Simulated assay, not measured.
Amino acid sequence: MRFVNLIPASHIARSADPRLTANARRAVITAKAAIVAATESAKRFDRTEALVNRDGTFNRSAIMRAAILSAQARMEVTGDAWGVCMSYALKGAWAAAKASRPYRAH
């Protein structure tokens, strides 16, 4: 059995709505810029103070400072609320600390 097109040809858009593509493009660019800004600020801060102490414990004040810097950078780029930016920043800072723990502790 062959399937037929149930939508008439006159109702099928030949090209995408330019507003939709511009908005989608803008959203992708903003998201990429936020990720780069957050990542770069965390990397910059990580060079100044270790997120993990030599005995393997987490340096919580350093993690919080890195998260605040990262959240500020994300907020400048995206304009999101502080709580949203801080949530992403804390997740990233803790992930970076957990990743550096095996290296730093030994």
Rank of each mutant, 00 (worst) to 15 (best):
T21H: 06
A38V: 08
Y103H: 09
I7V: 14
I68H: 06
L90Q: 11
S100C: 09
L69W: 02
A67E: 00
K91D: 10
A95V: 09
A9N: 05
R2P: 13
E76L: 10
M75T: 01
S41F: 03
K98E: 11
S41C: 07
Y88E: 14
R14W: 03
R14T: 12
L69M: 12
G79N: 02
V84A: 10
A37P: 05
T57Q: 09
M1Y: 10
A93Y: 05
A9I: 06
E76Y: 05
Y103A: 14
E49P: 04
N59G: 09
A13G: 07
L6S: 12
A9P: 01
L69K: 06
S61K: 13
N23K: 11
A9W: 03
W82P: 07
S87E: 15
R25A: 14
A34D: 01
A66R: 06
T30L: 08
K32I: 11
C85I: 03
V77Q: 04
A95I: 11
R54M: 04
A97C: 06
N5I: 10
F58W: 00
A50T: 08
A71M: 00
G79W: 01
R65H: 13
H11K: 15
F45R: 03
S10L: 09
S70C: 15
M64H: 12
I68F: 07
R14C: 07
M75A: 14
K98L: 13
N5V: 05
R25G: 08
R74C: 04
I12K: 13
T78L: 05
I7S: 06
F3P: 00
F58K: 01
P8C: 04
P8D: 14
G79K: 00
R44H: 03
A95E: 03
T39L: 09
E49L: 08
R104D: 05
D80W: 06
A42L: 15
A62M: 10
A71Y: 01
S10C: 03
M64E: 14
H106V: 08
R74K: 09
Q72D: 15
D17C: 10
C85M: 06
G79D: 02
I35T: 13
S61N: 11
D17V: 06
A66K: 04
D55Y: 01
R101Q: 15
A9H: 07
N53Q: 11
G92R: 03
R44T: 10
S100A: 14
N59P: 06
